[in-house]
Deep mutational scan, measured.
Amino acid sequence: KKTCTFCKKEIWNTKDSVVAQTGSGGSFHEFCTSVCLSLYEAQQQ
Rank of each mutant, 00 (worst) to 15 (best):
Asp16Ala: 04
Asn13Cys: 02
Cys36Arg: 01
Lys15Leu: 01
Phe28Lys: 15
Ala42Leu: 05
Ala20Ser: 13
Gly26His: 03
Ala42Gly: 13
Cys4Gly: 00
Thr5Gly: 06
Ile11Lys: 05
Gln44Arg: 12
Tyr40Gly: 08
Gln43Cys: 05
Thr3Pro: 03
Thr33Ile: 01
Ser24Asn: 07
Val19Ser: 09
Thr14Glu: 15
Gly26Tyr: 03
Thr33Val: 01
Ile11Arg: 04
Thr5Glu: 09
Ala20Gln: 15
Cys7Thr: 00
Gly25Phe: 04
Ser24Pro: 14
His29Glu: 10
Phe31Glu: 01
Gln43Leu: 05
Asn13Arg: 08
Lys1Thr: 09
Thr33Tyr: 00
Gly23Met: 08
Phe28Leu: 13
Glu30Leu: 05
Glu30Tyr: 05
Ala20Tyr: 09
Leu39His: 08
Val18Trp: 02
Thr22Glu: 13
Ser38Pro: 04
Glu41Asn: 10
Ser27Asn: 06
Tyr40Met: 10
Leu37Arg: 12
Lys2Asn: 02
Gly25Asn: 04
Cys32Gln: 01
Cys36Asn: 02
Cys7Arg: 00
Ser24Glu: 11
Cys7Glu: 01
Lys9Ile: 14
Phe28Cys: 06
Cys4Glu: 01
Gly25Lys: 13
Gly25Arg: 12
Gln21Pro: 12
Ser17Pro: 01
Phe6Trp: 07
Thr14Val: 06
Phe31Lys: 02
Gln45Pro: 11
Gln44Lys: 09
Thr14Ser: 10
Lys8Gln: 13
Trp12Arg: 14
Ser38Asp: 14
Lys2Val: 11
Lys9Gln: 04
Leu39Arg: 13
Cys36Tyr: 00
Tyr40Thr: 07
Ser38Arg: 11
Gly23Pro: 07
His29Ala: 13
Ala20Ile: 03
Ser27Thr: 14
Ser38Trp: 02
Cys4Lys: 00
Gly26Ala: 12
Gly25Val: 11
Gly23Arg: 09
Phe28Glu: 15
Gly25Met: 09
Gly23Leu: 05
Ala20Lys: 13
Thr22Ser: 08
Ala42Ser: 12
Val18Asn: 08
Asn13Met: 10
Gly26Trp: 04
Lys8Val: 04
Thr22Trp: 02
Asp16Gly: 05
Glu30Met: 05
Lys1Ser: 05
Gly25Asp: 10
Phe28Arg: 15
Cys36Thr: 01
Lys1Asp: 15
His29Asn: 15
Thr33Asn: 07
Ser34His: 08
Tyr40Ile: 03
Ala42Phe: 02
Cys36Gly: 02
His29Cys: 05
Gln43Lys: 15
Val19Lys: 15
Glu30Thr: 11
